[in-house]
Simulated assay, not measured.
Amino acid sequence: MALRHGAWLLAIAACAASPAVWAHGDVTPQAVDTSALPKLGQEWRPENPFRANDAAVKIGTSAYNQNCARCHGLEAISGGIAPDLRKIDNECAALKDSAKKAACVKEIDEFYLTTVRQGRTRNGAVYMPPFEGVMNQEAIWAIKAYLETRRDKPF
C-alpha cells in the first residue's frame, strides 16, 4: 500500500511540474510576421488603423494565439486568469450617439495600447508583461483588430 501511495504522490508531483500546468508563466514571446500589413511608422497611432482589416484580423488571430491566449484564453474567452478581452469595448458598442461612441472607442484604444505596451503591475506584482519592443505597432493593432471580431454581445 505504501508503494502505491508513493507512486500516486510521484504522479501528482510530475503533473504539478508539467509545463502545461504552469503555461501562463514565463514564456518567450513569439515573433509576429506583419509584412502583409502597411507600415505604420515610428509614431504610435492613438487609434486602431487596422479596424475591420481582414489581413490584420488574420495576422492578429495568429499573434493573439501565440502571445496572449495563454493568459486571456483561446478565442479571447478568459478562463479566469486574466480579463475576458471580448468585453473590452462592450460599453462602446452599446452606445447609440455616434460622437460618444467614437470617443469611447478612442479611449478604449488608448487604454489597450498603453496596457499592451507598458504592461500592468499592482503592488509590485506583474499582471501583464510589457510588449513594447517585443511586438511592433502593426502586430499590437492587428491583435486589437482580431479582438474586435470576438466582441461579446453588449448588455
Results as ranks from 00 to 15, higher is better:
125 A>K: 13
108 I>R: 14
9 L>K: 05
95 L>N: 06
29 P>S: 02
57 V>N: 01
116 V>G: 02
134 V>A: 08
28 T>R: 12
84 D>A: 06
97 D>R: 06
126 V>C: 05
106 K>M: 06
124 G>M: 07
34 T>Q: 04
150 R>M: 13
146 Y>P: 03
9 L>A: 10
65 N>V: 00
56 A>C: 11
61 T>M: 06
109 D>L: 01
44 W>F: 04
31 A>S: 13
51 R>T: 12
49 P>N: 03
73 G>K: 10
2 A>F: 11
117 R>I: 00
75 E>W: 06
75 E>D: 15
65 N>W: 00
143 I>E: 05
75 E>F: 07
39 K>I: 05
147 L>C: 11
129 P>W: 09
14 A>Y: 07
141 W>I: 01
77 I>Q: 14
80 G>R: 10
147 L>V: 08
55 A>N: 08
67 N>T: 05
16 A>S: 09
60 G>W: 00
11 A>I: 07
27 V>L: 08
140 I>F: 00
43 E>M: 09
93 A>E: 14
68 C>S: 06
107 E>D: 13
77 I>E: 12
43 E>P: 00
44 W>T: 11
79 G>N: 12
151 R>Q: 15
111 F>S: 11
21 V>Y: 12
45 R>H: 14
84 D>E: 13
91 E>Q: 14
142 A>L: 02
35 S>T: 15
98 S>N: 12
38 P>Y: 06
42 Q>F: 08
108 I>K: 15
93 A>F: 11
60 G>F: 00
38 P>D: 12
75 E>I: 03
116 V>A: 08
65 N>E: 14
47 E>M: 10
26 D>W: 14
98 S>V: 14
41 G>E: 08
133 G>A: 07
131 F>R: 06
112 Y>L: 04
23 A>H: 15
142 A>N: 01
153 K>D: 13
48 N>V: 02
13 A>H: 02
122 R>V: 12
146 Y>C: 03
95 L>T: 03
89 D>W: 12
53 N>Q: 12
69 A>H: 02
23 A>W: 10
26 D>F: 09
100 K>S: 14
137 Q>I: 00
87 K>G: 05
50 F>Y: 15
37 L>V: 02
35 S>M: 04
36 A>M: 10
122 R>F: 13
121 T>M: 11
78 S>F: 09
1 M>F: 10
85 L>H: 05
76 A>W: 01
69 A>Y: 00
57 V>S: 01
